[in-house]
Amino acid sequence: MAVPGLAQEKAAVKPGFSMPTGKPVRILVFRPDVKVGSQSAGGVVTPNAEWTANARKNLADALVAAKPGGASEVVFMTDLEGENATLLNEYRSLFKGVATTVLQHRLFKGDRLPTKVTGFEYTLGPGVAKLGELGGGDYGLFVVTNDAYGDSGRKALQIFGLLMAGATGFGGMVSSGVHAGYAGLIDLKTGDLVWLNADLKMGGDVREIDGASKRVSQLLEEFPGGTSGGVHFLPTTK
């Protein structure tokens, strides 16, 4: 059930950025950070390894097929070992920190940092070029999804809540689970964040091939230079 106030997705492009044209663009995709589990009536989430593995593969396949931004080539980062694997994990965590910061201070209206004119002056730093060298790419795409599907107890609670609301006027809406995600694009030469898209209420059952494809198209909405709307500039705020 969609809730209008919560159903909006938010995306932002770094002001002035557009995907280069006239030369091949290679996007390096980092293994999606995927969590899938079940949610009990009480809201407790239990991770499910099989669902997570299926979702990770489905999302990875769908990302390559999507060719975001009309990229001439979309490649996956090869499996790294040792220090390089540690470095990638550190940068993945830093990306999540940067994405969280943009969500909090740019996409959430009440929590602006006065010193940030556009709310989009963020970078992973030039050191991220090392990942570009290891994987070969002009831009790096990070994807994070978090899904929790309601178990039978939670679904029963949902129905009970709706019945109560219908019969008595009392009873709250119980959400069907958690389906959140975000994706961000990094310039692998400068480390600058050039695009971010986040949504709390994503569609598409990532455990299924078709659902993962739907999820990826939502994650890539308003991707700069993409076919689903092209470069989109949200109004900057102060």
Binding site: K96, A99, T101, L103, Q104, F108
Partner: peptide, 18 residues
Amino acid sequence: MNKLLLGLAFAGLAAPPL
């Protein structure tokens, strides 16, 4: 849950007052 709480949930931070 709003965007702020989502962000803080991802960051593992306690939520300050809105």
